[in-house]
């Protein structure tokens, strides 16, 4: 189940035009202690890498709620990277293990939803690995570039006339709806 909705249905010319201009937009969630510091080190070492990445700092990769990742896609990202401390090196002892488990599940969910798995990435980058960070970024950008622009989950039209379906109803209707139900849950669950 790959790429259910990943090809834009537009005229070929426009498509070519977009292909030429298109650059992927990638969000990276970096833990404060290792990966963010690793990215800092890449900076202080002046190691160049692809500029298509936007870093959001979190205290620990364990802080990354899978909803952040789904939300990022909904809000226009083409790819997401989560990076934490190496196993065993977590500043908070076990946070990166939680992140790893959550991520493994999310990856399956994302495949289930028909998304290209090249869009989401997970890496361990320590504070000493500036060059690794740049490598990771370039690899991720490349992978997402291959996957092409993300064009969204298959959402139902959301107008005042349509009755709001409950997440449970949506879940029954198949993978695309299921993804949407996740989205809906993220909205309704908000404080």
């Amino acid at each position: 189940m790959k790429k259910i909705k990943d090809k834009p249905q537009e005229s070929e010319d426009l498509l070519l035009e977009k292909d030429r201009l298109w650059q992927p937009r990638i969000v990276a969630f970096l833990c404060n202690w290792c990966s963010y510091a690793g990215a800092d080190l890449a900076g202080t070492s002046r190691i160049k890498y692809n500029p298509q990445i936007r870093i959001i700092r979190v205290p620990c990769s364990g802080r990354v709620n899978p909803l952040f990742i789904l939300r990022a896609f909904i809000d226009g990202a083409d790819g997401v990277l989560v990076s934490g401390c190496h196993p065993g090196d977590c500043h908070y002892s076990t946070g990166n293990y939680f992140a790893r488990r959550k991520f493994a599940l999310l990856k399956r969910l994302i495949e289930f939803c028909g998304m290209d798995e090249r869009r989401i990435h997970f890496s361990w980058v320590s504070a000493a690995e500036g060059s690794k960070w740049s490598q990771v970024v370039n690899d991720v950008v490349n992978a997402v570039y291959q996957a092409g622009p993300f064009t969204g989950f298959d959402l139902p039209v959301f107008s005042k006339e349509t009755e709001i379906e409950t997440p449970a109803d949506l879940c029954k209707q198949g993978p695309e709806r299921f993804a949407y139900s996740i989205d809906l849950m993220s909205r309704t669950g908000k404080k």
Binding site: L21, G76, A77, T151, G152, F158
Partner: peptide
Amino acid sequence: PALAGQKVK
């Protein structure tokens, strides 16, 4: 809700 089909850098 329409997401980022239109965003193109």
